[in-house]
Structures are given as C-alpha cells and as structure tokens.
Amino acid sequence: MREGGLNEREAVLRDLLLRGMAGDGAAYHSFLKSLSAHLRAFLRARLINMQDEVEDLVQEALLAVHNQRHTYDPAQPLTPWVQAIARYKLVDLLRRRAGREMLNEPLDDGLAVFAASDSEAADARRDLDHLLAQLPDRQRFPIVHMKLEGLSVAEAARACGMTESAVKVGVHRGLKALAALVRSSHENG
C-alpha cells in the first residue's frame, strides 16, 4: 500500500487541498477521497473493538476537516493538522464510550495519519440523510439538488428557485448545521 513516501503523499494531498480551497472542485473532491481512505485506515487501527464505529467517525472527521478548513495555515504541514483533527474526534468518541469499551491502543503518534490507506468503506451506522432532513429548506434543497442530482450551482439555483449565491451560502451553512446536528445527536444519545 506504500505508493511513494510519506513526504510525497503529504505534498500531493496538500496541493489538492490548496487548489480545492482556491476553488478547484475536482481537486478538492480527490483530496477528500484520498483523505477518507487515510482516515479510515488510521481509525480502523485504533478502534479494534469498535469496528462498527469506524465509518461514522470517518464521516464525522471529514465533516470536521471540511468545516474547519479555514483553520489550516498553508505555511503549516498538512499531516499534523489532519492528525490533530482525527485524534480530537477519536478521543471524543472514546470519552462518550468510556466505561463501555476500553481504549485498545494508546493514543501514541507512532502511526502517521497518511501512513496507510483503506478504501473499503463499511456502512455507516448513523444515517446522515436522516439528519439532513432536519435542516431548513433553504439549506436542504441546495444540498440535496447538488449532491443527489449532481446539478451545477446554476442548475441547482434554477431548481430551487434561489439565486446562485443563495445556493452557495445554503450549502455552506447547511454543512455547518449538519455537523452541529451530529454533535447534538451525541449529547442526546
């Protein structure tokens, strides 16, 4: 599974992220795609007794990376930033499960987040669609049209009867609201 060294992988991912943040949607899509495989391998190796939780946590970490990407400083290496987010979400889960399950592997930094990658996604247990349905229409419609029907911003704007900038803002705020719903679903359950 080693294709190129860690430094090379860091450079490739960082380049994709920066291009994505500059507006290159395709680059951002492939950044998220390979990031999800790295996150999956990283979390799977640390949640030995909680394999059912891995895909939920991958999704949560992806949402966090996306919603917090403004906190990434391009002058900073990408690996520690991603790893800190993944660990934060992991520790959060382990705290919620404390008492029920024991931490299998101590949270050392021995294994770098980009060291392994795993593209075999299991099914997520939490259904984000269910949470998505709770968003207000002005956020939900743009997200659903762009995600499910693969429409462009202009097409989604026509379909929703909204302006293009309202569609963009709706998607953006909707994804933040979705992360907040995930968080409150932890607190209530």
């Binding site: 899509h29 795609k33 996306h66 996604a121 997200i143 995600k147 693969g150 911003v153 963009k168």
Partner: peptide
Amino acid sequence: MKTDELISMLASDTLPVGLRGW
C-alpha cells in the same frame, strides 16, 4: 448516507474559504 456521497456533498460547497478572516 455512504461516505462517497458525503464527499460529493462536501465538494459541492464552493464558497471561497477565507484564510485570514479569523
């Protein structure tokens, strides 16, 4: 929702990211 769908959904958020705003 599958993770691939989530990724497409995240990638559809094209609002420019302000790196200096904070």
